[in-house]
Design a binder for these strands. Structure first.
Length: 270
DNA sequence: CGGTTATGGTCAT
DNA sequence: TGACCCTAACCGC
């Protein structure tokens, strides 16, 4: 689930459920027990998302909880309190609702300098109003690294993951192995604004949809061979299936340690 | 029921 | 580049 849109949505949902409220903080699993206890009974002040990182602050302390969901972490809010613990729950927050954090890559209580250290190594986040896309461009336009790898590098761009990188490159017709320095400025501007638009949709819907209305295969319905990962996409995990635009079989290849999917017909060097 | 895979990242080599 | 971390869903037997 978790690319940047998931974390921004989560920050908003947690704030709606808990901000300004006194919360019960526990670690049923025990691995965050000491820290959870120190926060127990405090008023939750606010939440903030930067890229794939979530920060939760509480009244009366400068320290913040830093959460990173990793590949399969979840942080689910459900109504009511006193729910039985099912499976491994690292951190549970309760006020009127119950929020359970499972399988995070990181769940830790950090001092302000430690928070600053994390933020300092993040590139601009397309979902943040304070983002400066020129910072990313500065890295990209002088790099020989493939654009498909640069988009995944959180020091270059914060919040983009394996689905958005594949989909934005498809939508912008960019060959994924093109070196950063060979991307024209106007193309980068288009990639950035498309990421902003796509990820904002992702926050609203809680899923990644990237297919333009004119390419929706409405008559036929979705291809039964395409696996369901929650959204409608052009190329992600569609290896071997015909491209929704040109019919060329979608290809797959590992780039930056992850499976990259692209259409060799629609995405060419230029 | 075991093996594989997953929208991520860190650390050691 | 590879080992490793964390959890759950899915697949084939």
């Amino acid at each position: 689930m978790p690319e940047g849109h998931t974390l921004h949505r989560l920050a908003a949902d947690l704030a709606a459920a808990y901000a300004g409220r006194r919360v019960t903080s526990t670690s049923p699993q025990g691995r965050f027990a000491l820290e959870a206890r120190r926060l127990d009974g405090r008023v939750l002040e606010g939440t903030e998302a930067y890229g794939k990182h979530l920060f939760v602050s509480f009244d009366g302390t400068e320290e913040q909880v830093h959460v990173h969901l990793g590949l399969y972490g979840t942080f689910l809010i459900s109504p009511g309190t006193g729910r039985p613990v099912v499976g491994q729950v690292r951190w549970r927050l309760e006020a009127e609702d119950t929020a359970d954090l499972r399988g995070p890559n990181a769940c830790e209580l950090l001092t302000p300098p430690e928070v600053a250290l994390i933020l300092a190594r993040l590139g601009p986040d397309p979902l943040r109003a304070d983002a400066d896309p020129d910072r990313a461009w500065h890295r990209i336009h002088r790099s020989s690294t493939p654009i498909a790898a640069l988009l995944m590098d959180q020091k270059v761009l914060a919040g983009v993951g394996n689905v958005y990188r594949a989909e934005v490159l498809f939508r912008q017709g960019v060959a994924p192995m093109t070196a950063g320095r060979r991307i024209p400025r106007v193309r980068w501007d288009a990639i950035w604004s498309d990421l902003v638009a796509l990820m904002e949709i992702g926050v609203e819907r809680g899923r990644i949809d990237t297919v333009r209305p004119e390419h929706e295969p409405e008559a036929m319905g979705r291809d039964p061979r395409a696996d369901d990962h929650g959204g409608e996409v052009y190329v992600y995990r569609r290896e071997g299936l015909p491209c929704l635009v040109c019919g060329t079989p979608v290809r797959r290849r590992e780039v930056a340690g992850r499976n990259l999917f692209w259409c060799p017909g629609c995405q060419r060097d230029r």
